[in-house]
């Protein structure tokens, strides 16, 4: 609200000097205070404008997604939307878990243990953001009819990145593993993403 006064007050501090000896310091102090008030006021007034561009309350209210996982059979995956992004929730088979665990870390581009990518005692459940870390395409492999790539996970059709059953990058141009979103198990059948 005080943006207009800022520059004016800023100029005056340097310029006005009616060379009267007494009171000169007091006057300088006064001008300095006025300049500071202008600057602070302008800054405070700017904040609502800037902050209005941050996510609004209705947007934030949708920043978590609760997913019922009771109906996902072993070997199946579902896709849910979370913060406008697809999230893959896969119910892994024992084979798939073994496969993910057996991999030697040195064979990985983005070195990460499978145990670091799932919740303890919930190893059957893999939750990853379904966005290829190369250039942001959505990998395929969610539906039985789709290719799961050379490593049984996902395959990105855009530039041929292959992900394994832990969602880690194994082959192709993508630099990083599929991201694991923050999530927690609310119960055995309900997870909350976000």
């Amino acid at each position: 609200m005080t943006a207009g006064s800022k520059s004016q007050a800023g100029i005056v501090t340097g310029q006005v000097g009616h060379s009267a000896d007494d009171g000169a310091t007091r006057r300088d102090f006064l001008f300095l205070t006025a300049g500071s008030f202008g600057a602070v006021g302008a800054g405070i007034a700017a904040w609502p404008l800037v902050h209005s561009m941050n996510p609004a309350k209705d947007t934030l209210a949708l920043s978590t997604t609760e997913v019922d996982i009771s109906k996902i059979e072993k070997g199946q995956s579902i896709t849910v939307m979370w913060q406008g992004k697809p999230v893959f929730v896969r119910h892994r088979t024992e084979d798939e878990i073994d496969q993910a665990r057996k991999v030697d870390l040195s064979a990985l581009g983005d070195k990460q243990e499978d145990t670091a990518r799932v919740k303890k005692d919930r190893e059957a459940w893999l939750v990853v953001v379904g966005i290829c870390t190369h250039l942001g395409c959505v990998p395929v492999g969610q539906k039985p009819s789709e290719s799961r790539g050379d490593f049984g996970g996902w395959f990105c059709p855009c530039h041929g990145s292959h992900y394994d059953t832990s969602g880690r990058i194994r082959k192709g141009p993508a630099p990083k593993n599929l991201a694991v979103p923050p999530y927690e198990f609310l119960s055995d059948t309900l997870i909350k993403i976000g």
Partner: peptide
């Protein structure tokens, strides 16, 4: 819902 929207 918009941050400071009422003020703007």
């Amino acid at each position: 819902d918009v941050n400071w929207g009422w003020l703007l």
